[in-house]
């Protein structure tokens, strides 16, 4: 049974966007801070640290969750995905990112990576989700720039393309 003292910094190893990586964390370090500060995961954005805004949303073992509401030590051995893993090695955007660009679904871009993770996670488990369900999923994210219009268009377009 792993036990970690409050002042101990332990090595946390995990898979980040397909690569095995590790960093040091004390028990109280938030997963969001760990990913950003120890693993340079710039696609994790911190917006509220109380689980409401959704900017820090990542996928943990496939599921979209708030990384500000998890501790780094809890992610030991987990498969973590962030929006940085969507684009190809050559930087080519994936279909969801392209749909976001085409539909002007982002302005400042701060909320975007979290939304991308919710969308891919949700459609992986609900490939036939309709507009209402997609809206419900997007309800877990705050965007202050776009009024959600472009986001909804992009997500609908992407969901339809995936089904096709």
């Amino acid at each position: 049974m792993p036990q970690i003292g409050r002042n101990e910094r332990v090595r946390v190893s995990l898979t980040l966007d397909g690569k095995k990586v590790s960093g040091l964390a004390e028990p109280r370090m938030l997963l969001s801070d760990f990913l950003r500060q120890q693993l340079s995961a710039g696609a994790v954005h911190v917006g509220c640290e109380h689980g409401v805004c959704g900017a820090c949303t990542i996928r943990v073992d496939g599921r979209a969750v708030r990384s500000c509401l998890m501790f780094a030590v809890q992610a030991q051995g987990c498969d973590i995905e962030t929006a940085a893993g969507l684009a190809g090695e050559d930087g080519e955007l994936d279909a969801l990112q392209k749909a976001f660009r085409k539909n002007h679904a982002l302005q400042c871009g701060y909320c975007t990576p979290g939304i991308l993770m919710s969308v891919t996670s949700f459609l992986d488990s609900n490939p036939d989700a309709g507009e209402d369900e997609l809206k419900d999923m997007l309800g877990g994210h705050l965007c202050r720039c776009t009024g959600y219009v472009g986001i909804m268009r992009a997500v609908l377009e992407y969901a339809a393309a995936r089904r096709a």
Partner: peptide
């Protein structure tokens, strides 16, 4: 904000 320190036990 960040939490206060605590010990962690993974059961």
């Amino acid at each position: 904000m960040k939490p206060k320190p605590f010990d962690y036990v993974r059961a």
